[in-house]
């Protein structure tokens, strides 16, 4: 018998004696565990900004696309364009004159090329699937951020998002994932809540452990 069968057989034999859930009182289980959030876009934005900035992220809420492009240009121009990379599908990067030539599309043939390009990158610019107001969290996946490494190797991760992408909770974000990837679930999905951090030395908070030291969200 293979180990697979051995394990499954042991599980089935064990579960032949069921146990009652000691905690199932249905009215308790239907109560919410979080306080309700005001679902208006303004209020979601305020909450998102407050939460992410509490965790050392930066949020710029802009009036319009030109405003967002201007803000992005300001951030990109501080670094050498050869060290700035963006998700190739980002329309803003090709549409707006302000940001042209400040960064390169993250297109590479092989994994080795990607690592070589991004290992020393200053900035990675990506989009997102949703912004979760509750925790100040960015929900993103391989197809919306030029793969896995563009959000994790550069020193500074910049996320471009629209106001309409704000959702109150993780649950709504997962709903969007299911809708979008119904037929082909991506190999990688992540939620990002602040710049990379560690407190492994005497519980002292240090930003930029292995991932980005800076996280900026530009939203319009």
């Amino acid at each position: 018998m293979s180990s697979r069968e051995t394990i499954l057989t042991s599980i089935r034999r064990a579960l032949a004696t069921p146990t009652d859930s000691p905690h199932r009182s249905s009215d308790e289980l239907e109560k919410p565990w979080y306080p309700a959030l005001d679902p208006s876009p303004d209020s979601l934005l305020t909450n998102f900004k407050e939460q992410l900035e509490r965790l050392n992220g930066t949020v710029f809420a802009e009036e319009s696309e030109p405003g967002a492009a201007f803000r992005l240009a300001g951030l990109l121009s501080k670094s050498d364009p050869s060290r700035c990379w963006h998700e190739p599908e980002l329309e803003l990067m090709t549409r707006r004159e302000e940001v042209k030539n400040l960064s390169q599309p993250a297109i590479y043939e092989t994994g080795a090329q990607a690592k070589k390009a991004l290992g020393n990158a200053a900035i990675g610019v990506t989009s997102a699937i949703a912004l979760v107001a509750r925790h100040g969290t960015i929900l993103t996946a391989a197809p919306t951020q030029g793969g896995r490494l563009l959000c994790s190797l550069p020193d500074h991760h910049i996320v471009l998002a629209r106001l309409s992408q704000l959702v109150p909770d993780l649950n709504e974000g997962y709903g969007l994932l299911r809708e979008r990837f119904r037929d082909a679930w991506p190999s990688f999905v992540t939620t990002i809540t602040g710049p990379s951090r560690t407190a492994d030395i005497e519980k002292i908070l240090v930003l930029g452990a292995h991932g980005p030291r800076e996280l900026t969200v530009i939203i319009w």
């Binding site: 994994g111 990607a114 391989a142 793969g147 082909a184 679930w185 190999s187 939620t191 990379s196």
Partner: peptide
């Protein structure tokens, strides 16, 4: 919420840029 909560569902899929 911890900084990163990541879901891994397979090796690099068709059309993905790395992994």
């Amino acid at each position: 919420l911890s900084c990163y909560n990541s879901f891994f569902g397979g090796p690099r899929q068709h059309g993905e840029r790395d992994g």
